[in-house]
Design a protein around this nucleic acid. Structure first.
Lengths: 150, 150
DNA sequence: ATAGTTTCAGATAAAAAGGTCTTAATATCT
DNA sequence: AGATATTAAGACCTTTTTATCTGAAACTAT
């Protein structure tokens, strides 16, 4: 499928939003996050291993262990998250495959489409984990099961 | 992956555009279409079987056989093609999962996102196979290898 | 130190998507 | 009628994505 983002990306956004809602003093157990986000726990563990390598979180083993945000969620853009898991896609590609898509060959269809792609790019590039978190806090919700980027 | 469309959808658009460029008097061999669109022939056959059930094309076996458009390409919307293969997705779903997404709970993020989804929907709903074809004719191209919806 | 808890790491399994192959059926031409 | 060309149909294979399992390592509290 030509994708906007994968399941992993969606999951990790939910997980990061949940973490960002906490005061970030304690480590949060993966199990707890799994329950509130409805992400299968083993899968979530693996995702955390992944983003722990990327230094977005730190983790602690043993009693009172868990995971904790290591970066400012206001600096974590959706684009970063998605491209980390799914790779960066080409938001500027011409739909007709022209290498040099000059003015002469531009048409309404092309323009419409590249505008759309720019908008998607801008949205992903300007929206952060913190943006989601602040809304969720306002709503006083705990569960993030339903959260979807699009 | 959360998709905009699958490979099948992309392929079938290319194939339909190719067919729509022909005068539609003769049946066109799947092999010929496969070569000009760079779609693996066995896969393309399968896709044609599919859309032949949907009555978008007719096919003829045997010598001088092949496939032929059975509908007006100006009436074939991208949305139809994509939803036929990938199913209709929910373009109006609230990103926070609210069943009743009332004004009070709407936020900038929600609005931005639903605007985007609407635009995508409108694009897919207003663009037809014929739109692609007319541009391709203008460009005097034969090969459709590079064509991509987005 | 030891027991208990919890992540880490990697192997493995299941599901979905994408792609190929083979045989049968059907049409056309001679 | 027979030979040939071409799609139909469905089984099968491959790759990618998603999900699970297991044994160890590490930390804490007692």
């Amino acid at each position: 499928m030509y994708m906007l983002y994968s399941k992993s990306s969606e999951y990790v956004v939910r997980a990061l939003v949940y973490l960002a809602m906490k005061d970030n003093a304690d480590f949060i157990m993966v199990k707890e996050i799994s329950e509130h986000t409805e992400i299968p726990q083993p899968f979530l563990s693996k995702i955390f291993q992944d983003i722990s390598r990327a230094k977005w979180i730190t983790s602690k083993k043993g009693k009172n262990g868990g995971v904790k945000l290591a970066v400012n969620p206001a600096k974590l853009k959706l684009l970063d998250v998605i491209s980390y898991f799914d790779g960066m896609q080409d938001y500027s590609r011409c739909m007709f495959g022209h290498k040099e898509c000059g003015v002469s060959s531009k048409c309404a269809l092309h323009n419409k489409c590249s505008d759309l792609k720019n908008e998607i790019y801008d949205f992903l590039n300007s929206t952060t984990i913190a943006d989601f978190t602040s809304i969720w806090k306002k709503e006083n919700k705990v569960s993030l099961k339903e959260l979807k980027i699009f």
